[in-house]
Nucleic acid binder design. Structure first.
Lengths: 153, 153
DNA sequence: CTAAGCCTTCAGAAATTTCTGAAATTTCGC
DNA sequence: GCGAAATTTCAGAAATTTCTGAAGGCTTAG
């Protein structure tokens, strides 16, 4: 279990995160937050680890903050800002990815309004709407069950 | 409810689909499959509707076929191939988007194997694995409930 | 108050993705 | 079989996304 192996696994995870919709640099940064042996991380450490510019890290951290995957810690008297992965990061990420569900539902409604009943398109769009309506109804319960089974520490 | 409105709604939906991970051209093509007033569509009709090259349509249709969102119909004596949206397109699309869940789970396991217990990273990765394990367990039941409520015609 | 270090911003470079156009291939009616 | 029409393929063009590097602003220690 070498350090090399550890960071290979980290980069591999970054690729999976990128598949899942995150942009490349935020994904790689998130992997650092996961795999670091420290409790918190600074921007400088991320830049060193990934071998990328400070500007890239700034943008990536900003993106991760905005979706609630990481949090800035009350500064412990240091000049550098410290960040860490949030406990609820995974359910947050899952929810963010399902924001699309709401958009799809709305798009379906618009389409239904723009077609006459009897038009094949009207039926297709109705079926689509029903599916996303169903999903939107199920997802909150899903996340609630998760939190019940695994309460934050 | 003009034709213009209808196809504006279609392009709007294509954007939502692109947000959801589909590539631009397959997304636009899928919107045509949804919004067309006919039961089936040919590649030529898609190309005309979208004003794009036959090559682009060929690639897009191939992509939609490979993920199971549309199907080729037994040729009704025409020279052109006819395609249509599949009944189970939406649950298929949802499943495809959740393929990532399995990849994430595997990545987490790799990371756990590459870190020692006691290492903060080990704990984070374990929590991550638990979440995706939970999701992977819940998704099949979710789709089963959908199919029970809305059996294919 | 000053200086040093950290972070942000943004214009431009680089890399990647996406689309087209035309040639090659396949298919189907005749 | 033959020929016309449709489809596939793929190299290169175009567009988009992503990263860097440097300048400027902000914060904190002294």
């Amino acid at each position: 279990m070498s350090e090399t192996e550890r960071w290979q696994a980290a980069e591999q995870l970054a690729l999976a995160l990128a598949e899942g919709g995150l942009q490349r640099m935020p994904a790689r940064a998130l992997a650092v937050f996961l795999f670091t042996g420290d409790e918190t991380v600074t921007m400088g450490e991320i830049a060193d680890r990934l071998g990328v510019s400070a500007g890239s890290v700034s943008g990536a951290v900003k993106a991760l903050l905005s979706v609630g995957l990481i949090e800035r810690l009350p500064a412990p008297g240091s000049r550098r800002e410290h960040y860490r992965l949030r406990d609820d990061a995974w359910s947050t990420l899952f929810s963010a990815q399902n924001t699309v569900v709401g958009v799809m539902l709305k798009a379906a409604d618009t389409g239904i309004a723009a077609t006459a009943s009897g038009d094949p398109a009207h039926e297709r769009l109705t079926r689509m709407r029903d599916f996303y309506r169903f999903l939107l109804g199920e997802l909150p319960g899903l996340l609630r069950r998760w939190e019940e089974q695994h309460p934050p520490r």
